[in-house]
Design a protein around this nucleic acid. Structure first.
Lengths: 249, 249
DNA sequence: GTGACACTTCGACGCTCGCCGAAGTGTCGG
DNA sequence: CCGACACTTCGGCGAGCGTCGAAGTGTCAC
């Protein structure tokens, strides 16, 4: 390797690294893979068979899609026994998918059954948005936090000092300082509401706490969470949320 | 339309609007269209022929790609005489493309000529990032603004009161309050530096001012801007930037 | 062991899509 | 008017890709 190919290197041994936008977009440009990624936005790990059934393809098709998504760095996998568990590789990827989904055109999907209608209402009310809360309840909480001065909107969202104290009062063991170079307070364009709700490390810590305290429990459908009576009480106490914000209706 | 199809509406006349992620991603999943969008990140309007030449396709091919991008809402077009000018539809779209590009894999592109090498250095130093500045200079400016307390990083980037005063001193006629629901201060992951630089309405206003004051002039290549002597002076004066940050090297 | 199960590999089919070239439309300059 | 030019439309070609089914590998439960 030391004698070179022609005895002399050409001038093209310098490279400019351009982003290969097309190959990344191609990973999401297929309906089946997009459905996988959208489902995985619930933050859970799914098995290959679960995803296949969701998207309506046979297992072998799912395998090839998962191979591509893992190779492309969008998904992380974990093999256990005869199962292959996959999840979104990191919050950064989830954020990127959200950024696309929020700007994507809407595709009307007919609702066939009564349980589907109920689930649709529940999804609009409170759902997992990877690691934080989404839906009309999340928008109401974000508004309330703004009104009470817990977050400020001077130039982008900020957690105010009283907001920091509020989190401590609730009992959130503030490791929201985090490790990764990740914004503490972000906003996320809510799909159903088309308004901003809170995201980022602070929102993730808040949501984690809320689930640990059983303010929310898993509902029907992978992304749905149900607000418990205990959660209603907490949101009334800590955010003075009105009753109409606390119900599906 | 009032008598219904079967005398009774079915339960599927209710629709849940799911985001059609795949169709949006498909627009960017082609190398030619991706090259178009990346080029348009310079914020200018391009003609169809310019884009075709850049991507190495014949005009008829460019037409069909542009049709799809315009129909998909990514590009806005303006017909004038026998020319078709296209640009990114709005800053929101630019932000989305940046979000993807920052996470896309890098594709090594050989640098063949000396002028290409010079342009490559210039791109890494100072370039247009749709409506604000990118490159190592932008990163240095962002760092300097942090050190001088003009922006704070308590929880996400914020323009501090002294930052607001600093902008006024420079002479920026602060309509950064803007009209669209757009974050005033954002960060943007720099392609070449892999570090954050300032974006959002504040950065756009700053960059617009800088070009009006001839701190920057257009360089060779569509996205390159060249720092003028006047600009060097201004950045020394307003941000105390050291000389090594002000040169291409 | 033996069967059930989750997943993988491979080959074949069919469709989509990007590409070009040739011909056509509209615009501008002289 | 007439040619040059920018762009568009259309037809046809070829490659890539998503799909499935059939057969194979590894794991778990009994």
């Amino acid at each position: 390797m030391s004698h070179g190919d022609n005895g002399e290197v050409t001038s093209s041994n310098v490279f400019a690294d351009e982003p290969d936008l097309a190959s990344l977009a191609a990973l999401l440009a297929d309906g089946t893979r997009a459905a996988f990624c959208l489902a995985l936005l619930d933050g859970r790990s799914w098995t290959a068979a679960e995803l296949a059934r969701l998207a309506g393809v046979v297992p072998s098709t799912a395998t090839s899609h998962l191979n591509r998504l893992v190779a492309g760095g969008l998904l992380a996998e974990e093999r256990r026994g005869r199962h292959r568990y996959v999840r979104l590789a990191d919050p950064n990827i989830a954020e990127m998918i959200e950024a696309l989904a929020a700007r994507a055109p809407r595709r009307p999907v007919p609702i066939r059954s009564l349980t589907a209608a109920r689930r649709h209402r529940a999804v609009g009310f409170a759902r997992v948005c990877y690691d934080h809360l989404g839906g009309s309840l999340a928008v109401a909480m974000t508004d309330a936090m703004g009104e009470r001065g817990l977050i400020a909107w001077e130039h982008g969202p900020v957690l105010t000092p009283s907001g920091t104290a509020w989190m401590r009062d609730i009992g959130i063991t503030g490791d929201t300082a985090g490790t990764a170079p990740r914004p503490h307070v972000r906003t996320c364009l809510d799909w159903t509401e088309q308004r901003l709700h809170l995201a980022g490390a602070v929102a993730a810590a808040l949501f984690r706490h809320a689930r640990e305290q059983a303010w929310f429990v898993a509902g029907e459908g992978s992304r749905v969470v149900r607000l418990t009576e205990r959660g209603r009480h907490a949101l009334r106490q800590y955010l003075s949320l009105p009753d109409e914000a606390l119900d599906t209706s």
